[in-house]
Simulated scan of single mutants.
Amino acid sequence: MYVGVFDMNQRLEKTRKILREKQHLKKLIEEDIRELERDVQDLEEILNQCQPTLQRS
């Protein structure tokens, strides 16, 4: 009986650890996505500024 309880507690701790790691990875991925979206916006602004110049040529 006690061995089963110990195993369950051990599994619960491992599951919690994995969940924390996955949440951390999720935050990192979300930050990367936000940075990529900002980069795309910056590039679109640069392209929009350059388009009138390109059309004149």
Rank of each mutant, 00 (worst) to 15 (best):
P52N: 02
K26F: 06
D42I: 12
Q51F: 00
Q41V: 11
L25A: 13
R38E: 09
K22E: 11
L43G: 02
G4L: 09
S57T: 06
N48A: 12
R16T: 00
K27R: 13
M1K: 10
R16F: 04
D39W: 08
E13I: 13
R11K: 12
Q10M: 07
E44V: 00
V3M: 12
K17I: 02
Q49E: 10
L28W: 05
K17A: 13
Q23D: 08
E35A: 15
L36K: 15
Q51D: 04
N48Q: 11
D42T: 15
F6A: 13
P52Y: 00
R38Q: 08
M1H: 06
E31N: 12
K14N: 00
L28E: 14
D32A: 15
E37G: 02
E31R: 15
M8K: 06
Q10N: 06
H24G: 11
T15E: 08
R16C: 00
M8E: 09
E31K: 15
I33W: 05
D32Y: 14
N9Y: 03
N9F: 06
R56C: 04
Q23A: 13
K17E: 07
R38I: 08
L25C: 11
R11M: 07
F6S: 09
L47N: 11
I33M: 10
R56I: 06
E30G: 04
R11V: 00
